[in-house]
Design a protein around this nucleic acid. Structure first.
Lengths: 254, 254
DNA sequence: CGCCCCGTTGATCCTGTTCAACGGTCGTGG
DNA sequence: CCACGACCGTTGAACAGGATCAACGGGGCG
């Protein structure tokens, strides 16, 4: 396996979780017009959900897709022996339910982490509409592709980063996701317990807690006065830099 | 977060990597007819590739998708700081290139691990054809969905399994992938070095080697006489059972 | 108030990493 | 032909990062 040629434009890859072309503002715009386009061509049902609400469940038959209009959602994958893991976090503009297409039944649970709004619609209806609206079809494909890329970035982070760097990367990812959607990213309020974060990152509650303490000691983050779930990020760039520095520094593939 | 209700039919989940509906024979058939359908509706270019050949490269502009007609391929994701990781293994019937749709450029390298045959075709042409062939469109969506599910299963294994179980799960996955395609699974020949396996599983060469030795000592696998890359699996079920037993035994999400 | 859940911190243990040495195989070239 | 070196895989010994076990404080709620 030869090392990849150096001919890749260096701008092609910025950071594992920072790959969008275009600015954050564009991203928010993209999401807005996507929601609009879907809503105008597919009959959908809008639903307000609350923390803990189940959008769909593993094993359940697949018929409908969902779009996040507001709120935060987690996807939980589980094995037959009881192992379960948070495998993805979804924000405004993200789709829920793609995992069900392949086998006609869902492979994950989708759970709301906070109050939010979900737009649900029939997959069949979407397909029908997309036959006359190529732009709609393109959106669906982009969304699925994005999901694949994101999952693989998660895989990369999980395998190559130390516990502290993983936590930093997680915070950076969360903040970045907010920023792209036009929300303020310097002051984030995690909707997850330490247990959930740990599960998502493949580590224990204690390790998450310690990692956060260490990040705080380095002034990469700061805990808001009252809530241990509210975190300030003075300098997003510093956090990203820490992720790279804290990586096994070039654990390359030979 | 409440524990999931017990109302999920237990048959809905068999094992992380063992979720197909239908028998292995059906799967091989599905793949065969899928290849046929694509070939009969999209102009494609067939190409024989050899170990080490690059099908596409991260950063490269996205225009074409690829179908594996024969051989073994790996997808390598890499971060800006040099970290890189094998994030997926692809076999006959798998698609290559979905990661490029979202951003118009590829996010991974796709590399052949052995001699094989790749069918390449324009994504645009595929879209055009799928407008008049709904079955074709369904195939594409199923393939993308399957990819998402697989990535999430990998995430789950990575986070919840011990090193030994991860190696066992990897072997089981490989063997199972062969079996589904109608190939013999009791005697597999890995196309990967220990370094690649370790990278894929998030562990070091030494740990992979030790894990294999321990699996061999338990008679879950046997090394073929001459090659340390040829492995016999007397009982696939035993390997699967070990994965479950070797799991952190219910590292649930609270 | 008492209980439960959440988060933090300390002490100890263990899994997997790191460092190191060694054997086998293959390709190259004297 | 064999010597040499590069590469791959295995195994051992020491180390360390994170898991585990345990104790404690704070907040919300019945």
């Amino acid at each position: 396996m030869q090392t990849r040629s150096a001919s890749i434009p260096s701008s092609a890859k910025v950071a594992a979780h920072d790959r969008a072309v275009g600015s954050p503002a564009n991203e928010a715009q993209r999401i807005g017009s996507m929601l609009e386009l879907v809503a105008s061509h597919v009959p959908l049902q809008r639903r307000v959900v609350h923390a803990g609400d189940l959008i769909y469940q593993a094993g359940e038959g697949f018929q409908r897709l969902h779009l996040v209009n507001a709120g935060f959602f987690k996807l939980i994958n589980s094995a037959s022996d009881g192992r379960e893991q948070v495998v993805a976090l979804q924000f405004r503009g993200d789709w829920l339910g793609f995992d069900g297409i392949a086998q006609g039944r869902h492979g994950c649970d989708a759970v709301a982490m906070d109050t939010g709004e979900i737009w649900s619609f029939s997959y069949e209806a979407l397909l029908q509409a997309s036959l006359t609206q190529p732009r709609l079809l393109a959106l669906v494909h982009e969304a699925m592709s994005r999901e694949i890329v994101r999952d693989r970035d998660a895989l990369l982070s999980l395998c190559t980063l130390s516990a502290d760097a993983r936590v930093a990367d997680f915070l950076h990812y969360w903040a970045d996701s907010l920023a792209r959607r036009g929300l303020r990213a310097d002051q984030i309020s995690l909707r997850m317990s330490r247990a959930e974060i740990g599960n998502y990152l493949g580590m224990t509650i204690e390790s998450v807690s310690r990692a956060l303490s260490r990040l705080s000691a380095r002034h990469l983050i700061r805990f808001a006065e009252k809530g241990r779930r509210d975190i300030e990020i003075p300098e997003l760039g510093a956090l990203a830099a820490f992720v790279q520095g804290g990586s096994a520094a070039g654990r390359t593939l030979q």
